[in-house]
């Protein structure tokens, strides 16, 4: 099987400081990869390099496109990369405000990607927006409300609906549950897990919350100071951490 995403020796420097370096992994279709680490460990830098928001200084990010097979995203032309960003890829931001258009209604937010890929039938767009609102457990009576009238958890779910409406194959998530209270987090995780399984999505989830990766991720990558210190199956890494930093991380979780 061809990996959906092959990352080879990616590095990003901020001047003399290391953003992230020597990162290599393969992601197969339907697989969810978790990246954990403390603040400043380079996990968001890595995610932005993979998603094409930052240009890595070194390395290759090879994505298995539907049309042309494996293509290096780093050297790909910008229009093609942006097109992928609207169709096969999705990016869920930590703050829903960064990923939503706050002055546009919920339906318009979900419909934007459809219109961006050439959908020009209002009735169809609206029907699909209503369908996706239902799938992320938002009442379709709220379809014409602006996201600013939504709670934090609803905004995050709306952001997910807006990203998944074009049926992407790879989802990047940057702290998708950050800033939400625990019961809302639990519902969101439940929803995400359902969608990932149901749509067969591949995902890369960056988080500092080990509970999130325990629930969602098949595989785990632990980062510290821009380097990958440990990788493996999620349960294996969390239950039997080998690296000193991973041991610290696992033992730092409060037991209630």
């Amino acid at each position: 099987m061809t990996p959906l995403l092959q990352v080879k020796d990616v590095a990003k420097m901020y001047g003399v400081r290391i953003g992230c370096t020597d990162v290599s992994f393969d992601l197969y279709p339907g697989e969810v990869m978790g990246i954990v680490g403390e603040s400043g460990s380079g996990k968001s830098t890595l995610l932005n390099c993979l998603a094409g928001h930052l240009a890595p200084d070194r390395g290759e990010v090879i994505f298995d496109t539907r049309a042309d097979g494996p293509v290096d995203m780093v050297t790909m032309s910008e229009p093609a990369r942006r097109m992928l960003g609207r169709t096969d890829w999705a990016f869920v931001h930590q703050h829903a405000r960064d990923g939503l258009r706050m002055s546009v209604s919920a339906g318009g937010n979900i419909g934007e990607r459809l219109m961006a890929v050439g959908d020009r039938h209002y009735g169809d767009i609206r029907a699909r927006a209503a369908d996706w609102l239902g799938r992320v457990e938002i009442s379709d009576a709220r379809i014409d409300d602006r996201p600013s009238a939504f709670s934090g958890g609803m905004q995050q779910r709306l952001q997910i609906a807006r990203n998944l409406v074009t049926g992407p194959r790879l989802v990047f998530m940057d702290e998708p549950t950050g800033g939400l209270d625990v019961s809302v987090q639990a519902r969101l995780l439940d929803l995400l897990r359902g969608l990932v399984r149901e749509m067969g999505l591949s995902a890369i989830i960056v988080t500092h919350d080990l509970a999130v990766v325990r629930l969602l991720a098949d595989r785990l990558m632990v980062m510290k100071d821009g380097h990958v210190v440990e990788t493996g199956l999620t349960d294996q890494v969390l239950d039997d951490p080998q690296h000193g930093y991973t041991q610290l991380l696992v033992s730092s979780v409060l037991q209630v």
Binding site: V104, S105, G107, G108, G111, R113, V117, R120, I125
Partner: peptide, 15 residues
Amino acid sequence: EYGLMHVKLYEDISQ
């Protein structure tokens, strides 16, 4: 990338 222009028209119709 003109999808956004249609978002404006979508908002018109929905309102």
